[in-house]
Simulated assay, not measured.
Amino acid sequence: MAGHGDARPRGYRGPPGHGTANPSALVAAEIAFARMAREKGQWSAFREYADEDATMFVPEAVRARDWLKGRDDPPAPVQWQAHQVWMSCDGTLGVTRGAWQRPDGSTGYFTTIWKRQKKGDFRWVLDQGDTLAQPLAEPDMLSASVADCQRGVRGVEPDGTIVVEEQSASRAKGSGRSADGTLTWKYAVAPDRSRTISVSMRKDGGMREVLALSVAAPVAAPRAGDGGAGGQ
């Protein structure tokens, strides 16, 4: 996985004093998450790093903590590496995207949305992904993009939280944003269990979509957890 927890990731171009965003801290969380999956077990790591109200896809959207509770770790975990990072100006919300590999040789991509907690650490609030016919090409360097700050917006609240995502009881759709509103996300799951995910960030005076993903409906009964980087 590109980047290192104690240094800005290669490719980061944010100017000095650009809000309180720190993409390297998010990269460090992603590295630690993947390492725990290798060393302590896949679902153990997902439980440890899940936000209280995190959502994952199996492939229907489920409350991650409920789905993961008591679930045995597979003999060998999925492995993954982040390729891209997006972060709000105030650093309360971030998105990572990259590649994963399963022990059976299958490959795919993942997208994970991270929320900064009150103590400053990160926990994931949404994890999803899909298989790919060919491995996702590894970039020469990890790219990181920070949203433009908004004038007149104070940004992060004193407790460091973000606006709580709005989710239906069935979790068929949900959305969220950073405390300063410079990074937003939303997803929707159709009755056939296909889904769409979109991420937008503030750039050049307006909100611009930086990530738009569509995952097709499953063609056969899926294995548990096929919907994200943790699929096994």
Rank of each mutant, 00 (worst) to 15 (best):
S170C: 11
M207K: 12
I162R: 11
R202Q: 03
G152W: 06
Q150L: 15
W185E: 02
Q150Y: 09
S198E: 14
R177T: 01
G174R: 00
E166P: 03
T184R: 15
E166H: 04
S145G: 07
S194V: 08
R154D: 13
K173V: 00
D159G: 02
T161M: 02
Q167P: 00
R195M: 07
P139I: 12
S145Y: 02
L142M: 13
K173I: 00
V199N: 12
D192P: 07
C149H: 07
S200D: 15
R193P: 11
S168I: 14
A169I: 06
S198K: 12
R193K: 10
K173D: 02
Y187M: 07
T196S: 08
S200A: 13
W185N: 01
S194Y: 03
V156K: 14
G174Q: 03
A144H: 06
V189D: 04
K173H: 04
V156S: 12
K186G: 00
S175C: 05
D148K: 06
S178P: 07
P191Q: 11
R151A: 14
S198L: 11
M201S: 09
R154I: 13
G205Y: 05
R195H: 06
R177A: 00
S143W: 07
G205R: 15
V146T: 13
E166S: 05
E166T: 13
S143F: 05
V146G: 11
M141W: 10
S175T: 02
R202P: 02
T161Q: 06
R177F: 00
A188Y: 07
V199G: 03
V189N: 01
S200V: 02
L142I: 12
G174V: 01
V164G: 00
D159N: 03
S168M: 11
R154N: 14
V153E: 09
V153M: 05
C149W: 11
R171V: 00
D140C: 06
Q167K: 04
L142N: 13
G160C: 09
V164C: 01
P191N: 13
S175Q: 05
A188L: 11
T196W: 07
E157Q: 07
L183V: 03
S178I: 01
A172Q: 14
L142E: 13
G205L: 13
S168W: 12
W185D: 02
T161G: 12
G205H: 08
T161A: 08
M201F: 06
P158R: 00
V163R: 02
S200G: 10
V199C: 10
R151S: 14
R154S: 14
A188K: 09
D148Q: 06
S170I: 03
G176H: 02
T196Y: 04
G160S: 04
L142R: 14
T184L: 11
S200E: 12
Y187K: 05
M207A: 15
A190P: 07
S194R: 10
V189Q: 09
G152P: 09
M201A: 10
M207C: 09
A144Y: 08
T182Q: 13
V164I: 08
S175E: 05
D192Q: 05
W185M: 03
G152K: 13
S170P: 10
G174T: 00
C149D: 15
T184D: 08
G174C: 02
